[in-house]
């Protein structure tokens, strides 16, 4: 239960950070914080106390430690997730730079171009 609460709390804090943000760069970083909640969740789902990393040279059944490996699937998912995060964050930061150039501000409160 505990890891779910931690993961949920990180996501929640990230969203709150975006909601209260006064700077778009800060908002984009808050988005990355929200995403780290998903890393925590995915990694805890696959974690087993005392288990080793899922790296082996021969088939795990032969080596005899099949029962004590952490789940490699979620680790692969986390890696994919990190790649997605890098793409999205860099893209949004580039947009924040463009907004700073075109609007002379990065404060969401002062961006008034899309109302009503």
């Amino acid at each position: 239960m505990y890891p779910y609460v931690v993961a949920g709390a990180i996501l929640f804090l990230g969203v709150i950070g975006i909601a209260r943000s006064r700077n778009l760069v800060h908002a984009v970083v808050c988005l990355a914080v929200a995403q780290s909640g998903t890393y925590v969740l995915l990694l805890t789902v696959g974690y087993q106390r005392g288990a080793t990393a899922p790296i082996f040279q021969s088939a795990p059944e032969k080596a005899g430690y099949a029962a004590t490996l952490v789940d490699p699937v979620v680790q692969a998912l986390t890696l994919t997730d990190i790649v997605v995060s890098a793409t999205v964050t860099s893209m949004l930061l580039a947009l924040a730079v463009q907004i700073a150039k075109r609007h002379d501000t990065v404060d969401p409160d002062e961006l008034r171009s899309l109302r009503g």
């Binding site: 929200a34 699937v73 609007h103």
Partner: peptide
């Protein structure tokens, strides 16, 4: 100016949605 502003709003909200989805995928897994 409006295009970059709209794209940022789009990106942040959609990414948040995607991460909530991913949380759900983690829970189902």
């Amino acid at each position: 100016p409006t295009a970059v502003h709209g794209a940022l709003n789009f990106g942040v909200i959609n990414s948040l949605g995607a991460y909530i989805s991913l949380m759900g995928i983690g829970m189902l897994y």
